[in-house]
């Protein structure tokens, strides 16, 4: 239990996917303009990430590793993610049209979100068990949500700020992301401090 909590907290705050591992930067910078869209995107990402982990972990452990097909990892994982995204979209459209209309536009973008593929591959690089992998995926999603929500607030302020002409738009957003990630560096060592090493 303690291990799962350690994974959860370190992946949300210390090793935040966006701000310290550079995974999922495209949606982080692309969709964080408004609060509602950043929340929608993050929830969709979290959902797909947990589902993808729940499918890829048994697939890898029971099929690929058993028959020494580890080299197929990339192809199998990306296909699973692409199929899942499609499946989730169809299911939402049929059973939860309201949710589909608010999350639907973000779903196609998730296939090419490196955070999802990154999370599923990292589960094996770190040698996590099934439960730990699920915690990792859930924490990564929550960390993504946290970063997106914080950053959408910052971006609304930047829109109104008076910045030099060359830095208008993209460069100023990147500098703001730099400062936010500097702030997140303050969490380093926190997990060891709370849970003990």
């Amino acid at each position: 239990m303690k291990e799962i909590l350690v994974i959860l907290f370190s992946v949300i705050l210390v090793d935040n996917f966006v701000l310290s591992k550079f995974l999922g930067i495209c949606p982080f910078l692309g969709v964080s303009k408004r609060l509602d869209s950043s929340v929608g995107m993050s929830i969709a990402v979290t959902f797909v990430m947990i589902l993808a982990t729940a499918v890829t972990w048994p697939l890898y452990a029971l099929l690929l590793a058993r028959f020494e097909l580890e080299y197929l990892q990339i192809i199998v994982f990306i296909l699973v993610i692409a199929a899942l995204v499609q499946l989730v979209e169809i299911m939402l459209k049929k059973y939860m049209p309201a949710l589909h209309s608010s999350l639907g536009v973000y779903l196609p973008l998730i296939t090419t979100n490196c955070a999802v593929l990154g999370a599923t591959i990292l589960n094996f690089d770190n040698g996590y068990t099934f439960a730990q992998s699920l915690a990792n995926a859930f924490g990564a999603g929550l960390g993504f949500l946290l970063a997106m929500v914080l950053f959408s607030g910052i971006r609304q302020k930047i829109e109104e700020a008076d910045v030099p002409e060359t830095f208008k738009g993209v460069p100023s957003v990147l500098i703001a992301a730099s400062i936010l990630s500097l702030a997140f560096m303050g969490f380093s060592g926190m997990v060891e401090g709370v849970f003990g090493k």
Binding site: T166, F167, V170, P171, V173, S178, M185
Partner: peptide, 22 residues
């Protein structure tokens, strides 16, 4: 060494995009 860490990456990228516009 902050330039080797995450904040430095965002910062340098931002400045390079701004310079490329010039």
């Amino acid at each position: 060494s902050v330039f080797l860490l995450a904040p430095g990456g965002f910062f340098v990228f931002g400045v390079l995009v701004a310079l490329a516009r010039k």
